[in-house]
Amino acid sequence: MMRRLALFLLCFAVWIVLVWPPRDETGALRLADLSAGALAALLAAAVMREFTFEKTRGLLDPRRYLWLAAYGVVLLFYIVKANFDVAYRVLHPAMPIRPGIVKVRTSLRSASAITALANSITLTPGTLTVEATADGWLYVHWIHVTTTDPEEAARHIVSRFEWFISRIFA
């Protein structure tokens, strides 16, 4: 029940952003828009079984949002670095690339944590997740391979995010 309530609130918040501002020129609430949004969010929360949150315990823990904000800053730094890296490789006349697919191991297990890790890897310098298996192996396409050893590659690719993500999705 709590999981559906959380989903309802998330859907309704997105709807309010989509129909912003919630008051018209005279200052009255736009009840037609808001009630339609409440109905749609209720429908979504009632129908969706698969896509609710895994657990609501800890959803309001402020420390996780603090970690999330810190992680956002770190990720933004790596994304900008990745973009300059890719732009350099593309604009260089000889295209200095040495691509290949390597495998790395992660200690994360929960589905949302592995998804977040795989998406972060895709957005950061020179790496793109091709497949993530249930037992913690990630297959990563690397635009400039320096090592094919899983341990060594994990130090380059995974370790800088694992620490943050294990705290956010604890």
Partner: peptide
Amino acid sequence: YNRLQAATKCVT
């Protein structure tokens, strides 16, 4: 795969 790398990162 290389095209996907460049396109995804930079266009995002």
